[in-house]
Design a protein around this nucleic acid. Sequence first.
DNA 1: CGATACATGTAACCGGTTACATGATTTT
DNA 2: AAAATCATGTAACCGGTTACATGTATCG
Lengths: 186, 186
Amino acid sequence: MKQKLLSTLSCAILGLLHQKPMSGYDLRKGFTSTPLIHFSDSPGSIYPAIGRLSRQGLIARTAREDSSRRERQIFRLTPKGRGALKRWLNKGVMRIDVISGMDELMLRLALMDGVVDRIVTNRFLKALQKEVNLYVAELRKYYALATATMPLSGRLAMESGMDGYRAQARWVGRAIAEVKRNRRLK
Amino acid sequence: MKQKLLSTLSCAILGLLHQKPMSGYDLRKGFTSTPLIHFSDSPGSIYPAIGRLSRQGLIARTAREDSSRRERQIFRLTPKGRGALKRWLNKGVMRIDVISGMDELMLRLALMDGVVDRIVTNRFLKALQKEVNLYVAELRKYYALATATMPLSGRLAMESGMDGYRAQARWVGRAIAEVKRNRRLK
DNA sequence: CGATACATGTAACCGGTTACATGATTTT
DNA sequence: AAAATCATGTAACCGGTTACATGTATCG
């Protein structure tokens, strides 16, 4: 049986539903009211995504809490959904993710707690560190070669990118230390 | 007459063709061989984009240089295309761009040279600075409130984002200074 | 001659965006 | 009673991804 590829939004939904069963509306609020806003809000993306996940058997309706509010459909993760979530969290960190999928990487990190153990988080951060450092080195090399011929605004834009990745490199070092410390304390 | 909304890729193509007329293949290489890689490579996105821009009258085929190579179709910007490019570069900097469109903002900056003057670049950077600082402040506030209840990995992911935006804030300060210095030297 | 780089495209698929539609419940 | 918020959806559109198709020129 082949695993369907899930969109980032779908995986975000799986991660949030793992933390706590909730409705489509709650999910939307979870996106719009936190820095997760990156991953879209708008009913036109979330409800269809819920429908797909439901059809694939990764999430399921819970008995609705008919307290007073109308028709709230609460969804929860199925075992199959939990499996899909774990697979997504366990994926490797590729060069291309660092170049154009950093948001998704950070989403993965954010959703790891309570789903995978610290070893996975640690492995993830180590892999990320490696790829970020490689990419910084590559950018530096490109910059050294091209800077002379680059116009001012182009150079500034490139420096912005490099600064961002350097900040990531520093951050990931601290993050690894924190995870290690946290593991020892347990 | 209403202006069609152009995709980021389309605008990137307009910007590159403004620097120098070239073929679809050249554009692809321009993307894959530089940090512009963010904005897709793959023939399946570039050739259709070229087709659309051509149909809209924003770019046009140049007499082909039939030196020896086969069928290279060289495209250049039309006056209408230059107008569209300028409008894109002159757009304001919104909060939402900072939150989920930083790549496009940096692309805009990178392509400004030779198309719009330093005043526009300066205005852009000032607006960016304002929005980045506001967003950093907002994140800080959210972090202060939520940090206690956030799991480790979630907190780390959030810190990554904050570090990134702080780096942007520092960079934009330097960038503004450089543009000012550069303007004085001229 | 075979491999690699040059060069351009098409077609199916997928999913996000936008806008619209609907209706209940709570607040003013 | 009107307005705002809660809550769920649908449909058209657009464009990016993937994979495929095709053929030339150059180089070893």
